[in-house]
Design a protein around this nucleic acid. Structure first.
Lengths: 126, 126
DNA sequence: TTTATATATGAACACATATTCATATATTCA
DNA sequence: TGAATATATGAATATGTGTTCATATATAAA
């Protein structure tokens, strides 16, 4: 893992600001945190999942409701709900044959809201 | 676009809660907003980009600094910086041959912070 | 102008991923 | 038990994406 840079074209030059790099390196989150962060945001990086989450902000719904609402197949929704569940973003409860999904994280609303702030502030030229 | 559901295996059944679906449908953000949201979060859905952004929270840096800090090739970093720039998350200034990158969005810090809140709260079983 | 350096970029490749299709599982009802 | 329904899931496929490699561009220095 360390000799992977042996023949890589990286700037082995004088342009590196070692003081800055060293200072930043100390503050940078560890690799596991970075990985978890990117995996977390990756979940929101899909239209279908953002729709599902946005919908569940308003109300608990069953798989069939969501498929109908989003005009998508039951299978596709089910697969995505599993992704959301694995990320602890939604939970479910079973009532007979029907499985109801709802949000399992208080910050989901805030995350979406903050995303909206960004895209509305940056939409048309700075 | 409307007849795409003609032979799709969606629940054309009685389990749909029409009242809930209709109410949620009205509140759901429009398709363009959903798309922009997912594209926005997709940017944070990559380890390298999260690292770059986290690093830039602390200090402006040149491409070479970032490549050295993250132990990655200059080309890989340059490609990712373009993605971040296209998303209006970073800006750059040129000083001779050196290009310095810095954050271009006040909420980036908040987004990362909120992500950390989630992964630390949900890490070890609820 | 020639050389060196810092960055940008297009193409290719390897890998990840979202949806579909077929089917399995679980539950209710007759 | 058997039929119907709601959901879950594995495999396959198509599409997206991150890095590498080679190279182009831009700037500075000799």
């Amino acid at each position: 893992m360390d000799n992977s840079m042996d023949n890589m074209q990286v700037c082995e030059t004088t342009c590196i600001h070692e003081d800055i790099v060293n200072r930043v390196k100390d503050k940078l989150p560890d690799d596991e945190t970075i990985y978890k962060l990117s995996e977390f945001f990756k979940v929101f990086g899909d239209k279908t999942r953002v729709k599902i989450v946005s919908a569940l902000i308003d109300s608990e719904m069953c798989v069939c409701d969501i498929a109908y609402l989003l005009n998508m197949s039951q299978s596709a929704i089910s697969h995505q709900l599993r992704v959301l569940k694995n990320s602890n973003l939604v939970k479910n409860r079973k009532e007979g044959k029907v499985v109801y999904y709802s949000l399992d994280d208080e910050h989901v609303k805030d995350i979406i809201a903050q995303g909206i702030v960004h895209i509305t502030h940056k939409g048309r030229g700075e």
